[in-house]
């Protein structure tokens, strides 16, 4: 088991390296001179030259790349070109709001998604199923940005129940996490339903029923445990989706998170911030997959790690 984790972690290195090289190249492919942008609209060429030196962009590209790699290995991603603060502090400030938003969205979408999925499977082809699946297919069909706008309009502007902006109190988390989680909840519901439907037809469930166990016990004890495995995988995959989805949702809700930071950084050609953020996104994504695989083994000990 430990060996497996170590092996997977080592396998992470080449992927991250490729991502790092790619993102460095992509960033330098972006049109627009960052020095010109940072110098501002009324700067003359002399000032632009000063700023270019200040940002270290006057050095040849290979040298810049080596500095980036060397820095990244020691965890130093340099300074933001926009605010001149350390990229690490810049990201640290934004990490928590995005992290909690993702976790909130994940938590409720798993609860609702699995709930709806189980209900739909148990009452298959009857009205709870129809209702649940209608909700679910609507959930994956509604773009997050449109849903966000609608929720904001109704609950914040018209009814004035919830705040619109910022990430200060728990109330601020409600609308964005609903927006972000809607699609995931829908996918979880559909997925849970289909894996439950399969399992409820398995022999061991029939046996349990034949033994005279009540239906709730059968569902909760026998079916749930076995259905959890594919659902868990799905959850891991969706976590990555949430990370990406947060970009759009953060723009709609003006959320002070990493998604907004990334959009702003791309806008301002803030190379160090873009590089660090993309690496971080990729790392999170890969780690989550690893965690899912490990949990997989814990739930179902018959799976061997190679």
């Amino acid at each position: 088991m430990l060996q497996y984790i170590v092996k997977r972690l080592l396998g992470l290195v080449p992927t991250l390296l490729i991502v790092g090289v790619l993102v460095f190249l992509l960033v330098h492919l972006l049109p627009g001179d960052p020095a010109r942008l940072a110098a501002g609209p009324d700067a003359n060429p002399e000032t632009v030259q000063l700023v270019r030196k200040d940002l270290g962009l006057d050095r040849p590209l290979p040298q810049q790349f080596l500095r980036f790699v060397a820095g990244a290995l020691t965890g130093d991603f340099g300074k933001s070109m926009r605010t001149k603060r350390q990229v690490s502090t810049e990201i640290a400030d934004r990490f928590a709001p995005t992290f909690w938003l993702t976790v909130c969205a994940m938590a409720w979408s798993v609860v609702f998604g699995m709930g709806i999925g189980i209900v739909s499977a148990v009452w298959r082809n009857r009205w709870p199923d129809r209702l649940g699946m209608t909700l679910a297919v609507s959930g994956i069909s509604f773009p997050a940005f449109a849903l966000g706008m609608v929720l904001m309009q109704v609950f914040a502007v018209q009814l004035n129940w919830l705040p619109t902006v910022g990430a200060d109190t728990w109330k601020h988390y409600i609308l964005p996490s609903l927006t972000l989680g809607a699609a995931v909840a829908a996918i979880m519901a559909r997925f849970t339903r289909s894996s439950f439907v399969d399992i409820l037809q398995e022999d061991f469930i029939r046996t349990a029923r034949a033994k005279g166990l009540s239906e709730p016990v059968v569902v909760a004890k026998h079916a749930l445990r076995n259905a959890l495995i594919p659902v868990l995988t799905m959850m891991g995959l969706q976590f990555g989706f949430l990370l990406g989805g947060s970009i759009v949702v953060e723009v709609v809700f003006n959320w002070p998170g990493m998604g907004r930071l990334l959009v702003d950084a791309v806008d301002m050609r803030d190379y160090p911030v873009i590089q660090a953020l993309v690496l971080l996104f990729s790392l999170e994504f890969i780690l989550i997959n690893l965690i899912v695989d490990v949990l997989y083994g814990l739930i179902n000990p018959t799976i061997r790690f190679r």
């Binding site: 992927t15 992509l26 989706f241 759009v248 791309v266």
Partner: peptide, 21 residues
């Protein structure tokens, strides 16, 4: 491996990068 790398970016992020370029 290529797919892994593409998968390692959240989709919209990749799209934003491509459109930006």
């Amino acid at each position: 491996r290529l797919c892994d790398v593409l998968f390692a970016f959240p989709g919209i992020l990749l799209a934003i990068a491509i459109v930006a370029i």
